[in-house]
C-alpha cells in the first residue's frame, strides 16, 4: 500500500529534523510505542502496543533511520511483528521550510501480513492515516 501525505509543524526544519532523530521523542510520538531502545547507529529496537477500539496487538520490531540528509530528508524503515501479523513501512520524509515552520511530506510503502492483512483490509488505510496524524500531532506538541 502506498502512503503519502503532508504535515505541518510550527518549528524550523532544523529543529524538526533533530526531533525526529531523537529516540526519546520518537518513542513518545509513535502511537502505541512502549519502548525504543538503541541497538546501533540510527537503529532501534521497538516494542509497540496498538490499541484501537476493541483491537489490540503487541508488536516487536525495529526502527531504522537511513540516508540522513539533515535537515532536508531521511528515510525511516519500520518493521514489526506480533501474534496478529506483521508490518513493514519504508518511507522518505522530506522537510521544507514553509510559513516560518516546516512542511513534512512523506511518501512510502507499507505492507502488512498475517491475520491483520486478511481481516483488516478495509481499515488499513484509514488507520494508517490516523496513526500518522497522531504521530505529527505528538511531534508538534514537543515544543
Amino acid at each position: 500500500m502506498k502512503i503519502a501525505g503532508v504535515a505541518q509543524l510550527a518549528f524550523a526544519p532544523e529543529r524538526a529534523y533533530e526531533l525526529m532523530q531523537d529516540p526519546a521523542v520518537l518513542s513518545r510520538a509513535i502511537p502505541g510505542c512502549e519502548a525504543l531502545e538503541r541497538t546501533g547507529d540510527n537503529e532501534y529496537r521497538m516494542k509497540m502496543k496498538m490499541m484501537l477500539a476493541s483491537f489490540s496487538g503487541a508488536f516487536e520490531g525495529k526502527v531504522r533511520l537511513v540516508d540522513p540528509q539533515p535537515p532536508t530528508s531521511f528515510r525511516m524503515v519500520v518493521e514489526g511483528s506480533g501474534k496478529i501479523g506483521f508490518m513493514k513501512g519504508d518511507g522518505v520524509l522530506t522537510l521544507t521550510a514553509k510559513d516560518g515552520g516546516t512542511e513534512v511530506s512523506y511518501e512510502g510503502d507499507a505492507q502488512i501480513g498475517g491475520t491483520m492483512a486478511a481481516v483488516g483490509q478495509r481499515l488499513i488505510d484509514t488507520t494508517a492515516r490516523m496513526m500518522i496524524k497522531r504521530f505529527f500531532e505528538k511531534l508538534a506538541a514537543e515544543v
Binding site: 502488512i112 501480513g113 498475517g114 492483512a117 486478511a118 481481516v119 483490509q121
Partner: peptide
C-alpha cells in the same frame, strides 16, 4: 498474503 481472507 491473501488479502480477502475473511468474509468481511
Amino acid at each position: 498474503q491473501l488479502v480477502t481472507g475473511e468474509f468481511m
